[in-house]
């Protein structure tokens, strides 16, 4: 099932630049890892195994803190800022219609 893994496509999906030599290495390693974990296909999973064991935790949909009290602290960590905002490259480009939000598909 894992013979035809397109590692380059995975890297695009994961927004991860991978060099060509590393890609060659990963094209061997990742199928090996997936072949190893495939042993779980042999496990006999009954319906009881799907019972959820985690409990959900909710909080009231309101602002827990006064606005602005952490702004400066958090902005200090940002690589680029403009005033009280984090500065980023344009997300949607009018020209190409896809800009930075490339889908990662071929």
């Amino acid at each position: 099932m894992t013979n035809e893994i397109d590692v380059a496509a995975l890297a695009r999906l994961a927004r991860l630049e991978v060099s060509d030599p590393e890609l060659t290495k990963l094209e061997k390693e990742i199928p090996d890892i997936l072949a190893f974990v495939e042993t779980i296909q042999k496990a006999d999973v009954g319906p009881e195994a799907n019972a959820p064991t985690l409990r959900n935790v909710m909080r009231a949909d309101e602002n827990p803190d006064e606005g602005g009290i952490y702004t400066e602290k958090l902005l200090e960590a940002a690589p680029a800022r403009e005033g009280n905002r984090i500065a980023v490259k344009q997300v949607v480009s009018r020209k190409s219609g896809q800009g930075g939000s490339a889908s990662g598909r071929k």
């Binding site: 890297a11 695009r12 927004r15 991860l16 991978v18 490259k89 939000s101």
Partner: peptide, 11 residues
């Protein structure tokens, strides 16, 4: 582009 900022930073 912002897409390249992501992938180059992470790479």
């Amino acid at each position: 582009s912002i897409g390249e900022v992501y992938s180059k930073t992470r790479g």
